[in-house]
């Protein structure tokens, strides 16, 4: 899949028709842009938030919620997002995707931060206070908290995504997950950095 998308990318860049010669600065700049757009882009890279949404979707797939978390078999999986427009737009892509018998419903809870109805909360950014508030409010509840705060030394949420050398690392606080009644699949725990000493 990546290969296909990359070839689209390259084709898009390669088709660039260069304008006729001009003395203007703007022209020179655009010409240069053309030259750059011909250059190929690093083939293994994907957009950060696209990857984060996909990882979070996988988290939902490989996590079992406690029974009482869903009122019915086909109830929506309420997926709440706190973050700027880039983050919100990225998560919109998950809307209506199926996880077992549940459909994903995306909620932007930037304004009214009521998390009690959420099955998953994804919180983006470096605001450590907001993060602490969320963790305090979600503690022990069947709410899967996922954050992407960089440079954390202690993990008080269930899942944390860190960027290390341009790749994502998955940190899972298993004690907190168990406390909230989650069962996480072995496949998930195999690829994650599992933290247990820090409930």
């Amino acid at each position: 899949m990546i290969a296909i998308s990359m070839s689209i990318r390259k084709a898009g860049g390669g088709n660039n028709r260069l304008p006729p010669k001009s003395r203007s600065f703007v022209f020179a700049a655009l010409l240069w842009a053309g030259a750059f757009s011909c250059a190929s882009v690093n083939a293994e890279t994907l957009e950060e938030f696209a990857v984060k949404t996909a990882v979070t979707l996988n988290l939902a797939i490989f996590t079992e919620w406690p029974e009482h978390a869903f009122k019915s078999e086909d109830e929506d999986l309420r997926f709440c997002v706190i973050g700027d427009n880039t983050v919100q737009q990225a998560f919109e892509q998950l809307s209506a995707k199926k996880i077992g018998s549940h459909s994903v419903a995306i909620f932007n809870i930037n304004r009214n931060r009521n998390i009690d109805d959420c099955h998953i909360v994804f919180i983006s950014g470096q605001d450590r206070l907001q993060l602490a508030q969320l963790h305090a409010a979600a503690l022990g509840k069947p709410i899967l908290t996922v954050d992407d705060t960089e440079g954390l030394t202690t993990f008080k949420g269930i899942v944390n995504l860190q960027k290390n050398n341009d790749k994502l690392t998955l940190n899972i606080n298993l004690d907190l997950a168990r406390q909230a009644g989650f069962i996480m699949s072995a496949r998930l725990l195999k690829v994650a950095n599992v933290i247990t000493a820090n409930p």
Partner: peptide, 24 residues
């Protein structure tokens, strides 16, 4: 057109996702 590629990301499995380089 480049931006549309994002939809492909959901076809990757978890191991692949954690191995891909990300740009912001």
């Amino acid at each position: 057109i480049n931006a549309e590629e994002a939809s492909d990301v959901y076809a990757l499995d978890l191991e692949e996702l954690l191995d891909v380089k990300v740009t912001s």
